[in-house]
Write a protein that binds this DNA or RNA. Structure first.
Lengths: 249, 249
DNA sequence: ACGGTTAATTGATCTTCATCATGTTGTCCC
DNA sequence: GGGACAACATGATGAAGATCAATTAACCGT
């Protein structure tokens, strides 16, 4: 387990970023959703949001609670999951800066309660808006609506890919798939590898890949032997993404 | 196997509907996406679509083919699936009247090729529009954009539910889940039961539930013994949806 | 109504993976 | 730097389900 030495747990990616005012202000313009709104509309849109911070471990949204707000993450990471009736949990995604969660649909359409839970996995700064107000923006700013449609389409495609993987692949393939997906989203170069910038236990990878923590551990050990990944307590880095990609195809 | 006698294969649900002009014209107004466009815009929007028919077995869209069109089904059913590299197939959804498929994103955003395949499972009439033209409608008619966002959100939620099921449940649960989902979408009362209005082989149910045709058959046999479903060659009807629902929870 | 075709069923076997149990090691905190 | 705790690793076992094989019977055409 030589991998474990010189662990990356303390490199900046894993530290809290501060949630400065400047950052919160610039979030809108950096966010894909608002990329092409006209200059003169930025302030008006911006003023409708308010900022909200969460401590690590806080619920951002919670299954069963009454829905109605929409959040965009500025800094930090959060975990999006669904809970089975028996208490087990399926990790659907890890959200980071620019990602959003919550409900867009309001009273008329869709469920009145959140069906997913989002928990801050580090300190998180976000901006937030009520669904109804957000819908007003969508009406007034067609470009935002188009971007929203695009982003939702893209998420839907990812979800469908996941359904395909879970439905028809081995544990090895599913774990490889999850790692690649996370690295594309949260990857950061580190010592010739791609480090996944999020605390990530075996249990959590397992919850994403639809397997058990033990099987996940075995698979990672195997990947390590084949020099495909480095992994330690709470972190994973990809050494050879191409070969992992081949495992899936 | 007394179930099999008096098969429903020939009741109207399974017959082709004709694709009349009147029907095609009314499609827009019945479709959720266009439900609240102003009266005076209907014709303008309508004129941008063109109608396309498909014979049973035709490809409507095909993985790997260059994307760029958007289809709304008027009559008939079609199957939406993804193909694994090894040729196996994951059935993601069964589309029927009012459902749509294809790409909304155009050149700038998203992949240039379809990532899913849709095959007509009966004769299908649809209306179709280029992605770019559709985006123009989204820009001009905010209500359509909102509806599109809502529908995508709803589909995404369904996909996430599916991920949860596939990731953490037994074959029995997954099959029950798939049957319930299909019955909600394609259910039709028939002899005190809810018939699923679509040709549906064990293989296809299996492809949706992420299992093998044999396991699916065993599960259905068991459900039949417990008086939860009726099923024959190519069809399934729910006898006791409540109990099936309990299997999932 | 009668065969023929092919989906569906059922049984037997083998593989994969979840689970349980136990040992190991990184990380945190002093 | 050292001890404690929790995460991780790994071995053994069993259960769920995939796969292979053989039989049955639903539906179709005539």
């Amino acid at each position: 387990m030589t991998d474990r030495h010189n662990s990356p747990v303390h490199i900046p990616a894993f530290e809290d970023e501060s949630c400065t005012v400047a950052l919160r202000k610039q979030l809108l313009r950096k966010n894909p959703l608002f990329q092409d709104i006209p200059e003169n509309a930025v302030d008006r849109v911006n003023s409708r949001f308010r900022s909200v911070s969460f401590e690590k471990g806080d619920y951002i949204i919670r299954e069963g609670k009454s829905a109605g707000r929409f959040y965009i993450l500025a800094t930090g990471v959060a975990k999006l999951f669904r809970t089975h009736p028996d208490g087990r949990t399926t990790l659907l995604d890890i959200l980071s800066s620019g990602d959003y969660c919550g409900s867009i649909a309001d009273a008329g359409f869709g469920p009145r309660e959140y069906e997913e839970t989002v928990i801050a996995d580090s300190n998180v700064c976000s901006i937030s808006i009520g669904s109804t107000a957000f819908r007003r923006i969508l009406e007034e700013q067609p470009s935002v609506a188009l971007r929203t449609v695009d982003t939702l389409s893209s998420r839907l495609r990812l979800a469908n890919e996941m359904v395909q993987q879970l439905g028809g692949s081995s544990v090895e393939t599913r774990v490889a798939f999850v790692l690649l997906r996370l690295s594309k989203k949260l990857g950061q170069p580190w010592e010739d590898k791609i480090l996944i910038r999020s605390p990530l236990s075996r249990e959590e990878i397992a919850a994403m890949a639809g397997t058990s923590a033990e099987s996940c551990s075995r698979t990672l050990s195997d990947f390590r032997r084949r020099n495909l990944v480095s992994a330690g307590r709470g972190w994973v880095a990809l050494v050879d993404p191409e070969s992992l990609e081949n495992l899936i195809a």
